[in-house]
Amino acid sequence: MKFTTLAALVSSLAPASAYLVTGDPLNCRSGPGTGYAIKKTYPKDTDISITCQTAGPSINGNAIWDKTSDGCYVSDYYVKTGVSGYVMDKCGSGTTCDAPSANQATVNLIAEFEGFVDHVYIDDVGNPTVGYGHLCNDAKCSGVKYSIPLSEADGKKLLADDMKIFEDCITTVLTPSKVTLNANQYGALVSWAFNMGCPAVETSTLVARLKAGTDPVNTVLAEELPRWVHAGGVVFPGLVRRRKAEVALAKEATKVGALPVDC
């Protein structure tokens, strides 16, 4: 997301001071999105200092995430900044690369394994959920911008929105590096990140090998992705099938590039 002149003016005038937390409580995460690990929690009515802001998954229509002076990220929806837009500079402005969107083949792959439910339901851990595993912020999923019950087409659009955090994750961990990915290789990694979470991606041998750049990309993916098939120490057939599908997608030839991106 690019700054407008007005947004830049607002940020230059805004004080780098404390803003009130309205969430009760508010989780501060290692990255801009709910897929990142919780680093700390702020009680309601706490004043927090924001150092910069960035785009991320929308929370009740607000797609801005605030980086706090503690070095973690909170949803701007739960911070009383007084405006609906940016009040600070974009995090890494001038140096941060925008993540490319994954292709439709990636959306379809993830959709196949996530499964589709057109109405709001409660998942196994008590979260209101709709579509292809979209976690809602309230019991009616009022933050979803598509009509419920969802059509499968709108479900995939919502899924594509949810994928942005994992597109950003893959782009961030591999920028800068020696690796070059086409759209299908990138999509395979986005699917893997969507499934396993960004904290696991960040510390993985797979990413370390890609960044080293000593082995062909498809060799690394074919050797490393099949290792990610366990849950609670047990091999899950569904994860085995998903990893095979990701490897197959990565091996599918395409001339469309993904990474690196121009900043």
Rank of each mutant, 00 (worst) to 15 (best):
L221P: 05
T205V: 13
A8P: 06
P216G: 05
V217L: 04
T81M: 05
P216M: 05
Y132E: 11
L249E: 07
P57K: 11
V173Q: 13
A200H: 02
I110K: 08
G23Y: 01
T171H: 06
S11D: 12
S101K: 13
S12H: 08
A63F: 13
K80C: 05
E246G: 05
V256E: 15
T129P: 05
C263K: 08
F236Y: 14
Y36D: 04
D123F: 06
K244D: 15
I110T: 11
N218V: 10
A18H: 05
V247G: 01
A55I: 09
D45E: 14
L221W: 07
G94Y: 13
V10Y: 11
V83H: 06
V261A: 12
F113R: 01
H119P: 00
A8L: 13
G187E: 03
G94V: 12
K164M: 14
D45H: 06
T96I: 08
K251P: 01
S12K: 11
N62M: 03
K67C: 11
A102R: 07
L6V: 14
T172P: 01
V201K: 00
P25R: 09
A208T: 12
K39C: 11
S69T: 12
A245K: 05
K255L: 07
D45A: 06
C97Q: 11
L135R: 15
A102I: 14
L221C: 09
L225I: 12
A8N: 12
P226M: 07
V10D: 09
K140P: 00
V256L: 11
C136I: 07
G126M: 01
A200Y: 04
V220S: 11
A55N: 12
V83T: 14
D89V: 06
V74I: 08
S101P: 03
P128N: 10
N62S: 01
D70A: 15
A193W: 09
K140Q: 15
G23L: 00
G238H: 01
K44P: 00
Y36M: 00
W65Q: 02
A14T: 15
C52H: 14
V240I: 13
G143H: 00
T219Y: 13
E112D: 14
A8D: 08
I165A: 15
L181M: 07
